[in-house]
Design a protein around this nucleic acid. Structure first.
Lengths: 235, 235
DNA sequence: CGTGTGATTGACGCCTGTCAACGTCTGTGG
DNA sequence: CCACAGACGTTGACAGGCGTCAATCACACG
């Protein structure tokens, strides 16, 4: 068998154990290793665009990708972030539709690209793998339904508080207690579904209420229970 | 083999051809026929409640079910309607989570109930079937993402117009040109994500603008292009 | 015919989006 | 090393969309 041309060894990948790839056999993993291509993307590059057909899916080794849709007036809505261990693009391949989001790198990213044909083959040949993907899709569907309810019923203030908590959970804090992920005010607005100015004003309020500290783009949560209360969530 | 105790014969079911069940073998279909139970539910009954574990999924023969989530202040958000040929409840089984919605009958419904164990067995033994379910979940996920963007970016007026169009597409019109599905103003509000009074006022506006005619709960669309324009959608 | 549920209308005001102006920061090129 | 351009952040003013409350009407059902 030809040796892979890439530097990333999926067999040694730290994310393998927790990912859907843990359900592959050794020979299937070898096939992945052989067919995949490993790439590095700098910030601000695009992986794919909404409305286009994609011919493979991506497994993120490191970095952060934002997935967003562009609304009718050209305003973006961020659907989710993908980071280490996440796979993206599979939805479009499996539902045989064009990509429903645009994928843009917001922190330098290393990832593996795996052709659609191999995804389909694995789904068809390995029950466990197929079950895991199914589970993943159903999980995301549940999350999406929750988000719909939130965005339809909560105020902007509640949603912003909730988003900060979610970002903390997904990306954790750095040594200084700041959110690891760095977003522009505009990007925050595109998650919450509001205007940039509203985010700025509300963050200032949160700061005045001693819920957060702000230093440039860095956001430090100093009163998590307060934020949770404000977000009006039971979790 | 024991003969099924139910009156509904899935082998003769008119929805079989277009549904995921068309991918089952004859013997698998027999198994479904044997394990399923066929039931009839009057309006206002519940199939299952948000947050509970469910032990099977449902295939709708006729009638309409609404799937909704209840928000923090007790306000409902309708996620989708299920009618003839649709299957519901599979998400929760496959993602091994409690139901993320409540399912309530809004028009007398006849359906088949199939145990979770059989769903899992079929998913694991029949590649085509598993692929179809996967496709379905991915499709729904794409729809949910679209809905998120709409609800986050569009005005209530645009969303209401869009909802009317969607209801027309999904349930078609009766002989008089009215939407086949009958909803309370409150239910309409729970789809759009707004207050009942807002729906009432906007419907009156639509009527004044000769876009719709209203007669009690009956809604007749008399200017579809106008509605589409108002909804601000490209479709 | 009474009762209750849903529909409607009006009043009111706050939340939030928009527009505009200005401050801040970063990186690039001279 | 400095100046400048451009992107991003901030603040204020303003209006209007939309949610809430309350009162009344319409209708169906026992």
């Amino acid at each position: 068998m030809k040796s892979p041309k890439q530097d990333h060894d999926c067999n040694a990948c730290v994310h393998k154990l927790n990912s859907i790839f843990s359900h592959l056999t050794d020979s299937e993993l070898e096939e992945v290793e052989y067919e995949k291509s490993c790439n590095f993307f700098k910030k601000d590059n695009y992986l794919y665009h909404e409305g286009t057909r994609i011919n493979g899916f991506y497994c993120i080794n490191s970095g952060i990708i934002k997935l967003f849709k562009t609304g009718v007036v050209g305003k973006d809505q961020i659907i989710k972030f993908a980071s280490k261990g996440d796979i993206i693009g599979y939805r479009s391949i499996l539902s045989q539709e064009p990509a429903c989001t645009t994928a843009k790198v917001i922190e330098d990213t290393s990832l593996c690209y795996i052709p659609a044909s191999l995804l389909l083959k694995l789904v068809n040949s390995n029950q466990n793998f197929s079950m895991e993907i199914l589970k993943l899709a159903c999980k995301e569907l549940g999350d999406a339904n929750n988000f719909i309810t939130d965005i339809a019923q909560k105020t902007v203030r509640e949603r912003l508080a909730e988003v900060l908590i979610i970002l903390k959970d997904q990306f954790d804090l750095d040594k200084d207690g700041n959110l690891q992920i760095t977003l522009t005010r505009n990007e925050l607005a595109s998650i919450v579904g509001t205007a940039t100015e509203s985010v700025i004003r509300l963050l200032s309020e949160f700061k005045a209420d001693k819920l957060v500290e702000l230093k440039g783009k860095k956001i430090k949560i100093i009163n998590l229970p307060g934020l949770i209360k404000l977000s009006n969530t039971f979790n």
